[in-house]
């Protein structure tokens, strides 16, 4: 999420004006979404194992089919001409972004089990992935070779994020542990303990929660870890969204960002250059975009979306947001006033 280079838009984002401007419907419930770096398209994966590409200007849709399981991660090459999808089949597939009849150009068996998360370095030459094999791997985007592999998580890896310096990597797991790695040596430098995002329910005998998403503030001051808490009934979807905000340098937990009255889980988060955090929450309360400032635990604004949301990405213009939904829609929201006519 945070690894996209957001351009300074001419328009200033105002979350309080956020509204849905566009929605496209597909045949299956949608999972993950990403804008391409050149802002031509938005990609979304679906429960039919495909990835769909919509042209942002015209809404024309093209299917990418080669995975034999759900795709959970979408990333891009430095020039945006290749899109890299990661699936529950453990494979990374490279595709030509703009092809009308896309075929894989490279396939890598990346993980044993699901690829759950991916993040590209600031210069997009490296791709980090994390999965059910509890490993974090770093790949050369240019040729698909393995550049580094880090082990140390004791539960499935749910989230990865490159630091803006491109030399360090963060990875979060089901148990609420966020490890910081030095990529060149592969060594673990330190760990953020986000165990508030983890629950073991003894009655149901299940591990639940985890660090579902990671985001870093533009100024490098804060690390946000998103997930859930207050989960008395994990199997019944009774839980509340939570973002833990840590001071990067000291690792001190400075804020627990909550959304009062909502049931759900944070499924995506991004820091905006104008110093607010935008997150998507999906759950039994439905789908919401939530907006926080770092100095306040409660969201200063929320937008209820038409359906339960599953992923979030921010457009390079830093004004538009893409969300994927269970009701088979991809929706674009805009953080500006509605235009008349």
């Amino acid at each position: 999420m945070q690894d996209q280079q957001t351009e300074q838009a001419n328009l200033k984002a105002d979350p309080k004006q956020a509204h849905v401007t566009t929605q496209w419907k597909y045949d299956s419930p949608l999972i993950a979404c990403r804008f391409d770096p050149q802002a031509r398209y938005v990609f979304a994966s679906a429960q039919d194992n495909s990835v769909q590409r919509w042209d942002l200007a015209e809404g024309h849709r093209v299917a990418f089919r080669a995975h034999d399981s759900w795709v959970r991660t979408i990333a891009f090459s430095p020039d945006g001409e290749q899109v890299i999808t990661g699936g529950c089949d453990g494979r990374l597939i490279w595709w030509p972004t703009a092809a009308e009849n896309p075929e894989p150009v490279r396939t890598v068996d990346a993980h044993q089990g699901w690829i759950r998360t991916a993040s590209t370095s600031p210069d997009a030459t490296l791709l980090a992935t994390g999965g059910n094999d509890q490993l974090v791997k770093v790949w050369n985007v240019a040729d698909g070779t393995l550049a580094a592999e880090m082990s140390g998580h004791e539960k499935d890896v749910f989230s990865v994020l490159f630091h803006d310096d491109g030399k360090r990597l963060l990875s979060g797991d089901l148990a609420g542990q966020v490890h910081q790695w030095e990529i060149e040596s592969g060594k673990r430098e330190r760990t953020f303990d986000a165990k508030q995002l983890y629950t073991y329910n003894g009655g149901q005998r299940v591990d639940f929660g985890g660090v579902r998403t990671l985001a870093m503030s533009r100024d490098g001051r804060y690390l946000a870890c998103g997930g859930l808490h207050k989960a008395p009934n994990p199997l019944g979807a009774v839980h509340e969204p939570l973002v833990l905000l840590y001071e990067w340098d000291s690792q001190k937990l400075v804020q627990s960002l909550v959304a009062e009255g909502l049931k759900g889980v944070i499924c995506g988060a991004v820091f905006h250059a104008e110093e607010f955090l935008c997150a998507a929450s999906g759950g039994s309360s439905g789908g919401f975009l939530l907006f926080w400032k770092a100095d306040q635990p409660k969201d200063f604004h929320r937008l209820k979306l038409p359906n339960l949301v599953r992923d979030l990405d921010m457009h390079p213009d830093a004004v538009q947001l893409a969300t994927t939904h269970y009701d088979r829609h991809l929706r674009i929201s805009r953080m500006t006033a509605k235009q008349e006519g």
């Binding site: 059910n132 499935d156 149901q204 005998r205 299940v206 591990d207 994990p234 199997l235 019944g236 979807a237």
Partner: peptide, 17 residues
């Protein structure tokens, strides 16, 4: 062996159980 009543996140929980 318990618990398989996975109304929520069926796939994560079946992975575990």
């Amino acid at each position: 062996h318990s618990n398989y009543d996975t109304h929520n996140e069926n796939f994560n929980f079946h992975l575990e159980q």
